[in-house]
Design a protein around this nucleic acid. Structure first.
Lengths: 189, 189
DNA sequence: GGTGTTGGTCAACGAATGTTGGCCAACGGC
DNA sequence: GCCGTTGGCCAACATTCGTTGACCAACACC
């Protein structure tokens, strides 16, 4: 995106975005009111409208994160599981608010669901297409991987199931990597 | 629960519950308004209040489903994966509205999250405790199983990722059962 | 057949929400 | 130093929500 000239209000704009991510992540779309977000950012609710047009516009701006999935060509069959699971764990811990918000909202809001759908289609499907034996099976295999990765994200970061939260990063990788590799490379059962 | 004497309004009561499950499942807690539920059930919104006290009371009543997880003692090491995954698929397809609603709401509403947490703790943990080698690892293993099963439910029934929806029941079982068995019985990596 | 009880509707309330427009102060180029 | 532009606040709007209480109709019982 083109970097526009810096404006005097940039600090406020990002303060709004930060507060919005936190609120969307912890409360979901409906309960995260513009008034609450504005109060967190210590500005007037009308500023949110002026800068982002509407609540939906704010949501779009707040969740504009880049997943930067690894290049499929760098993946190897026997390490693809560790690489992908590790990548997603890192990603989630670095952008916890934004990603938790996206998942939380995707479950309630149709537009959010479509966005999440597009992300996984655009980013995970190429990996499957590149690494799995029969390209025709790539969508199914990508869907399986998505189910396990999203499921762990759901249990660990959204529902916060104690058993899932307690797992160390290395344990999650050790358990999930073989699953992901099998979904991508094992022969169709 | 004690079966109370049949009332003249039982038809209306269940009509409200059916409509509520559909609305909660498709719209989530906040967007499922009492007015919309009442209109679906062809009665006045105030009836919902009279019969169920409040919106939260209606939600509790609508989601009172029994998971009836298989008895752990009937499970065998080499079939536990097929049994559990098949059971959850059947359960979800028979009570699609109620379970989708519960998952959808659990992601937004803290009380819903706690309910889902309790369900998995009370029902899945005993299975893990009975079947996995070291009882001390049972919580972690149950959490892993929950992440995969909830993840498939999320992808297939809530987000409706095309790749996950397209899978036939037997394919889901064939792919997920080895994962579940491994999470429960494989030695700690 | 009168009467109390139950099933149901109607109209309204108070609160909260997204959103809008008007107003004021501070900044920046000339 | 003047004045347009920008950043920000305040007050209010219309709508929608959950919830309430008054009121009416149909049933059941003696």
């Amino acid at each position: 995106m083109p970097d526009r000239p810096p404006r005097r209000s940039d600090a406020t704009r990002t303060a709004i975005l930060v507060a919005a991510r936190e609120r969307f992540a912890s409360d979901g779309y409906e309960r995260a009111t513009i008034r609450a977000i504005a109060k967190d950012a210590r500005i007037d609710p009308s500023m949110v409208m002026r800068y982002y047009g509407s609540k939906e516009g704010l949501f779009d701006a707040a969740l504009d994160v880049d997943l930067h999935i690894p290049d499929p060509r760098e993946l190897r069959q026997h390490t693809v599981g560790e690489t992908l699971v590790g990548h997603f764990l890192t990603l989630w811990e670095e952008n916890n608010d934004a990603l938790t918000a996206m998942l939380r909202v995707s479950v309630t809001n149709p537009a959010g669901a479509e966005r999440l759908q597009r992300i996984f289609r655009d980013q995970l499907l190429p990996v499957a297409r590149h690494i799995c034996p029969d390209p025709e099976q790539a969508p199914a295999r990508a869907g399986l991987v998505a189910s396990q990765i999203l499921g762990m994200a759901l249990a660990r970061y959204v529902l916060k199931l104690p058993a899932a939260v307690a797992l160390a990063r290395e344990e999650v990788i050790a358990w999930l990597a073989p699953t992901v590799r099998r979904y991508l490379t094992a022969p169709h059962p």
